[in-house]
Each structure stands twice: as structure tokens, then as C-alpha cells.
Design a protein around this nucleic acid. Structure first.
Lengths: 229, 229
DNA sequence: CGCATTTTTGATTCTTATCAAGACGAGTGG
DNA sequence: CCACTCGTCTTGATAAGAATCAAAAATGCG
């Protein structure tokens, strides 16, 4: 237990990660296991496949010719990805941690796919609002709440939801239309004000959900000079 | 013809506008006619309806509590709008010009709706890339090409596609994540460099499509000091 | 224990927002 | 037909916010 990847977290999240690592799943269930930083649909292969994320985290992103990229969505367990859910000709999908997938039958699960399509559209439209009109603080607050909701599997303990942040600061920047430095500064500020906590940069605890939600919706951000601490 | 809304345009675009104004359509075709600046789904009514835009232009937008708003999409003839295509609880749809709609039967046109859903998702994701990572010039160039494609009904005459810009500068700003002033400045710059032309601010001609496409994809914008003129 | 990657933080620059004034165009009524 | 008004557009001056550049601290890995 002391070798867990999350030393600072008081709640040892019971993920399937260990199982995935040890390949303890039977081989005939259609599951696929991927490491970190791996393309889901490598080099034209699997491009026609639709998969369900069983465990882990992936991001859908679109690169621009000169190196810029925009992460369009971050997907956790239960979400679907496939040619219908994104333009895989222009986009790519990458794991952000060890991830377990299961291919699904589009014909048999047509309804699920349509629902996923609607969910993706809603999320994309909400994200457009974020990218076009929200301030740095609003973006970070929105993102933290979204990730907490998707990745704090287990009980939403009141007073402190802890989750594993699979994205690097650079990933967050590419998702939220910011830069690495700005993301880091904003997270530091939220931590300084006591809205969130983290010792390890990848394990975040939400301390004041209400305040974060208010920020995400556009409440004035706390001025930095106000609270000394 | 002299009372046409586009005095400066040399090509009198043969729209259905006049027909719409004069209500010359039969009343039993299920068509609805709306003026400018009208909500498609007013006050909870029609919210369950799905419509096809026959003629005109509408925008889907999401307002924020403090007055900010993000236009999520601009839709022209042929496109669909309805509860499946947007979260109408949080969003609103408004006409940007005289518009003619036709309600459709979701059950009978399920396939069309699914296609529209996919198209909307693609557009929303492309827009997220624009909002998150594109420069001002890239955004404007992308928007002009998109609008030209959607609204230059008739022949894509080479050397100069003219289209009616139904959006105001403020609308463009709310669509592209900018401000009115920045949009106006950028359009002026593109005009000054000869990529586009307009006498009336609402009737734009694309003079150099290739250059605009290059800009939209991220080519370096022409420095303002270079060409005197 | 050292090396590579990531994160934090500071100093500076640059882009774009903000503020503001004037020009233009459309619609109204005399 | 013309003055009047309102809304939109253009353009300039200034300021704020975030990017960029850069260096040091922390973390992970072999």
C-alpha cells in the first residue's frame, strides 16, 4: 500500500489499475490494455472501431500544423470513443494513464452511441463557452469540478473529494486554451486560498466545492492580496 | 429592386427573402416565418420541436449570468435545430435575419437528425480548436470561409464570392471569442491587404480565397507595416 | 545517486480588452 | 427632401491580462 502511486491521498482509491497492470483479466473478454501516452487508434488501425473506456483516462485532441494542439475532451470510465464521436481523420486519442478498453458492437449498442454522441455535443458546446468567454479562474474551476466528477470514483465524501489528476499542467493548458505557466499559477492561487489542496501535483483534493462552483459560474475571483497566509 | 437590403452588392442574390416577406408560401406546408432577432423557441414553447432552416440564418448561443455570451454555432439553410442538437435549457436560438423554418417529424427523419448531430459535433469541436488555440486573424479567416460556404448560395464564382453577413461585429465577436473592436480591426486589416472587400459592412466579398485559407490554417499573418496603400 | 521531465515562480513583453470619440447608415417624422 | 435620432461600425489611446522567456525546485526513473 505504501507503494501506491498516491502517497498524499488519505483515501486509497480502489482502482482497477493494479488489476490492469497485472493483466488479471481473462483474455477472452475483448478487453484491451494500454500504457500511458499511447494512441488509441494507432496509424490507421482500429479507426473503424468504437470502444468503451472501462478504466483509466484518455484525451481527444486535435493538433495544428505548427505544434499547437487543442484537447477537445477528457474521457473517463464509461465514456465511448469512436469514428462517430470525433473526426479521427483530423484528431487523435491518447491515453493519459494505464487504460483498459473494450470494443463494442456499433449495431448492437446503437442507442448507447447516440447517447454518447449527444453527451459529447453537450460537453463540446459547454467547452466552447469556457474557451470563448470564461476567465482563467473560471476555466480552472470548471475543469477541476468536471474532473472530480469523472474521476473521483467512489464516494463523493463531503468536505473533500480527492481525485487523481491524469493530466499534466501542459495538458490542462491545451484543454483550457491557456499556457502551462498560467495553469500552474492559477492552481497555486486556488490552493493558497484554501479551495483546493495538493501535495503531489497530480493528486488534488477539492476542499470547498461550493466556492469552486461559484467561481466556475462566474463569481468574482478572490483578489490575491486579500488573504495573506 | 432598388429597395433591396443590399444596395452595395453588384450581384443581387436571388434569395427567398422577398417571398418570405410577402408570405407567398402556401399556409399548409408547415412553414414558419420569423423576423430578425426573434427567438426560435420562445418561452418554453416549441422546445420539443425540431426544425429545418429553409431560408435565412439563426445562431445558437449560451448566455452567461453577467451578460457575456458565447455564440456556439451559426446555422444557414438546410441545417437542423432542436432539443437533441443543443441543450435548450441553457441555450437559446435567435434569428439573425428574416428566416423561414419547417418543423420536421423526429421519428420519420431520425437518420437526418443523427447526421445533423454528427455535423454539429464536428463543427463544435472545430470551433473549440479555434477558440482555444487560434489567433485573431486565423479566427476571422476561418469564420469568413465558413460563412461564405454556408451563405453564398448560388455559384461559387472564382475570383470573388460575395455573401451577406447576417452577423453584426458584436455577433462575430461573441462567436469567435473576441470583442467588437478587435473584429472590426481585423476585418479592416484583411480589407486593407486586399484579401476581402466590402463597402457595406454587411456585404463581404472574398477576393483571395487561397490566402484566407492559408491564414485560417495558421500561416503567418501579413504584418501591417509591409504594404502601404 | 544522477538524469530527464515536470512544476513552480519571477521578470518582461505582447496581444487584445477596455474606454472613448467620431463616422456612417437606416429609419422616422416634419 | 431634409433634419433628427438610434444603432452600428471604425479607429485611436490606454491598460489589463496572459503569453513568453527563463531559472530554480520538485518529482520520477533507471
Amino acid at each position: 500500500m505504501s507503494t501506491n502511486i498516491m502517497p498524499g491521498a488519505s483515501t486509497p482509491v480502489p482502482t482497477l489499475d493494479v488489476l490492469v497492470r497485472q493483466r488479471r483479466f481473462p483474455e477472452n473478454t475483448g478487453l484491451r490494455f494500454l500504457g500511458t501516452g499511447v494512441s488509441l487508434f494507432p496509424e490507421g488501425a482500429f479507426r473503424a472501431e468504437t470502444v468503451r473506456i472501462v478504466e483509466g483516462c484518455v484525451c481527444l485532441y486535435q493538433p495544428l500544423a505548427d505544434g499547437r494542439r487543442q484537447i477537445l475532451d477528457v474521457l473517463g470510465p464509461g465514456r465511448l470513443m469512436g469514428p462517430v464521436l470525433a473526426d479521427l481523420g483530423r484528431c487523435d486519442v491518447m491515453t493519459l494513464t494505464r487504460t483498459c478498453l473494450k470494443a463494442i458492437d456499433p449495431a448492437r449498442e446503437a442507442l448507447c452511441i447516440t447517447e454518447a454522441l449527444q453527451q459529447s455535443l453537450r460537453r463540446s458546446q459547454a467547452h466552447a463557452l469556457l474557451l470563448g468567454r470564461k476567465t482563467v479562474t473560471e476555466r480552472i474551476a470548471t475543469a477541476l469540478l468536471d474532473l472530480a466528477w469523472q474521476f473521483s470514483h467512489g464516494s463523493p465524501v463531503r468536505g473533500g473529494v480527492t481525485f487523481s489528476l491524469y493530466l499534466t499542467r501542459a495538458d490542462l493548458a491545451d484543454w483550457l486554451g491557456l499556457t502551462l505557466a498560467t495553469v500552474s499559477r492559477c492552481l497555486s492561487a486556488l490552493k493558497r486560498h484554501g479551495l483546493i489542496a495538493y501535495d503531489h501535483p497530480k493528486v488534488v483534493t477539492i476542499l470547498n466545492r461550493e466556492a469552486l462552483e461559484a467561481l466556475a459560474l462566474g463569481a468574482p475571483a478572490p483578489a490575491d492580496g486579500g488573504v495573506p497566509t
